[in-house]
Amino acid sequence: MHAPLAPGYRPALSNGWWLSNRRYFLYMVRELTAVFAALWAIIFVTQLPQITAGAYSNPASLVSSPLWFAFSLVSLAFVLYHAWTAFNATGTLIYLRMGPKPIAGGSLNAAMFIAWALATFVIAFVFVTPAIGG
C-alpha cells in the first residue's frame, strides 16, 4: 500500500504500433490472412451454382477470368502463410506428455505439416480425378 500516487504520465500507443517492429508487422499480416480466406470462400460459394452448371467451360464466367486467377493467387499466398503460422503454433497450443518427457513442440508442428500434405494430396486426388470416363 502506498500513500496517494504521485502524478505521472502514461505514454500512449500509436495506431501504427504494428509498424514498429518486424514481428508486430508479421502478426498483422497473419491477422489479415483471415480476410483473404473469407473473401475467397464467399466468392467461391456465390459461384458454386454456375460452376456446377459448367462455368469453367464458359470463358465469360467469373471463375474463368484472369481476375479470379489473380485473386486466387494472392489468396493462396495469404492462406499458405496462415497455414504456416497455424501449424507452427501447434506445439505452443498443445502440451502432451506421455511418460517422462513431454512431446517436443517441433514434433507436433511437424505432424501437422505431414497431415496437411496428406490432406492436400488426398483432396487434390479426390477432387481433380475425373469421376466418370477419362
Partner: peptide, 30 residues
C-alpha cells in the same frame, strides 16, 4: 483454412481456370 483452403484455392482458383486440369469437360471433375 490451413488444412483445406490451400488445396481448394489451388484447384478451383488456379489449376482449373489456368488450364492445368486436362479434361475437356470440367463437370467430370469429381
Amino acid at each position: 483454412i490451413g488444412m483445406f483452403l490451400p488445396v481448394l484455392i489451388l484447384v478451383f482458383g488456379l489449376a482449373i481456370p489456368g488450364g492445368a486440369v486436362p479434361p475437356a469437360s470440367y463437370d467430370t471433375v469429381r
